[in-house]
Design a protein around this nucleic acid. Structure first.
Lengths: 343, 343
DNA sequence: TTGTAAGCGTTATCAC
DNA sequence: GTGATAACGCTTACAA
């Protein structure tokens, strides 16, 4: 079924039918109704290829997701999809490998799909620096800040990673902990770096020296790596009474590793994660964490992008605070234990 | 950059350039190299809209995923994407709501995107019955069987749900359990029904009467629902010594609920899940489960679909066994406990 | 208010 | 082997 056939069927010309279908003015109400009725009757759909070829763009929003099995991004995507009504701007979702260059991929997809705008779920600063210049579409980076990225068309929405990490360390310190191990990421990851900085800031404020050689492990964002990280820390000699992992999946792996090593959480070692995944509410013990506000991140991301697309407003960089959830995996330092642990 | 400009640049005609770019014969080696070099130089990409408009189809494979935050489907998608090399057939992934009609959505997307074939990750039998007739493309349904669906163009790849559930019940019975509660889904879900049937078969074989009114709870596939299900069961009076949940997320919620109720897993109650999610390896206790073989499911799905697309072979319906992983959350029945528990 | 027709970037069918 | 050219289904001046 093409617009031509529909035109023949209704007795109008293709131009008129097209105008009706695209809600253009200058069509009589009578014509509009007739065409719409006929279109409805045969559940007519415009050929997207022809339309986009003609218009030199599609009406889609491209979402480039870094890594595909990641509960946080899954939730975020769901929330974004709910926010950007599917009918208004269909989302084209593309997954790239955790280590891939998401920006490069976006450049390619832009040429191919000509979307209206781009949402990056995760992304590496270095990749933006080197490749984003090729992208001229309104874009928003979620979960990473683009504040210091010099682009006229890049917004960002991110949790306040640094503050949240400070809060985590503060909380542990308030509970009496002094030897806090950190399970982080490599410094190639912007998020890992930012979160690490937050930790260092807090340690400084509390005048607690931090020896990264001893108490920092850089691993990937996975259960298995959290597990391994604890094993590594323990192999260096157990001197910590608390562990802060910069993601919930790492934290969950860490808890399991501690327990496998005969340590109780939180009685022997406290653990705090980051993200606020659903699963954290059902682990044993429930995972203390900094919750990223998924709905707000998604909401702001959608609003900003649509504003940029529809009204061409200037890019914005927003930071959304995390919500602390001090659940069962943290507890006060037991002085008796420490003495033993430090031996 | 268009093919026309590329033609001008190389001195050949658009026809020749098109032939080179599409690996058609009847092009001299010299020409081929010259055009390819020029295309490479300006990283030329054919305009997909124009191409597809002309060809009346795209070269994409449509993937309709039911529910978007589901680790199993996430893993499956990743494995399928790895298997179907992105360059050969780009995947267009579309998420539909857990309760939505995935087939109806596919019909719409087919009109719009003209893909080569469709992969359904999850789907409801009833929806296929009512709407699949409108789809003429090779399709494969994953994680649900389409064996008894009367369609010439629908294959399916599924785990052996029934057998796996029998195995779960067998295992519990062998460990001495007789009162086994089941956390399942509503009978509107084909998978839930199949798994329930497997359980009943096993109970029959062991001559264990099963009172669904007392020991079956139908909930949704989520942590929260697994949690609630146990609370419901306990409210009916605790008479079971083991729980079989038909998904890992339910099982994890169930474990937490048991522990919150002062029961130990597996000492007081054994728990078995279904799916084999990564997280199950890191919970406390590690979750006993029936692992769906994600890589094989994905591999067969991809192979079958590509065979259907490229060679028009008849649809196949394959069943892949699950792998039992009897991890820490199951244990033998302690007769002393039972006496107490039954009181 | 409606109709006509050019042209978007390809591919495919011709003729050469 | 190669080059012209029609056609794919649509939007959008411009003409009526």
């Amino acid at each position: 079924m093409t617009i031509k056939e529909l035109a023949a069927q209704t007795g109008y010309s293709v131009g008129t039918v097209s105008r009706v279908l695209n809600n253009h003015p200058n069509v009589s109400e009578k014509t509009r109704r007739a065409v719409l009725a006929a279109a409805e009757a045969c559940s007519f759909q415009l050929n997207a290829n022809a339309k986009q070829l003609k218009q030199q763009r599609s009406n889609t929003i491209l979402v480039v997701v870094k890594g595909s099995s990641n509960e946080l991004f899954g939730n975020l995507l769901e929330a974004i999809q709910a926010k950007i009504s599917r009918t208004a701007y269909p989302l084209v979702v593309d997954y790239v490998d955790e280590d891939a260059n998401a920006v490069e991929r976006a450049v390619q997809l832009c040429r191919e799909k000509k979307p209206l705008g781009i949402i990056f779920l995760g992304g590496n600063r270095q990749n933006f620096l080197s490749d984003f210049v090729q992208i001229e579409l309104p874009s928003v980076l979620v979960t990473n800040s683009g504040l210091d990225l010099p682009f006229e068309n890049l917004s960002s929405v991110t949790s306040d990673d640094r503050k949240a990490c400070e809060a985590a360390i503060d909380h542990l310190v308030e509970l009496g902990h002094r030897r806090i191990a950190i399970i982080g990421g490599g410094m190639g990851s912007d998020i890992a770096r930012l979160r690490y900085e937050g930790c260092l800031l807090a340690f400084d404020r509390h005048h607690i020296p931090f020896d990264a050689q001893r108490d920092y492990v850089a691993v990937r964002f996975s259960y298995a790596d959290g597990y391994r990280a604890v094993k590594t820390l323990l192999a260096r000699g157990r001197q910590f009474t608390a562990v802060f992992a910069i993601s919930d999946v790492m934290a969950i792996g860490a808890v399991r590793a501690l327990q496998d090593s005969g340590l109780r959480v939180p009685e022997d070692v406290s653990v705090i994660g980051f993200d606020g995944l659903n699963i954290g509410e059902y682990t044993v013990p429930r995972l203390a964490t900094l919750c990223q506000r998924v709905d707000e991140l998604a909401g702001r991301c959608a609003d900003i992008l649509i504003d940029q697309i529809e009204h061409g407003v200037a890019p914005r960089h927003e930071t959304i605070p995390c919500t602390a959830a001090w659940k069962e995996s943290v507890g006060p330092l037991d002085p008796a234990k420490t003495a033993g642990g430090q031996d």
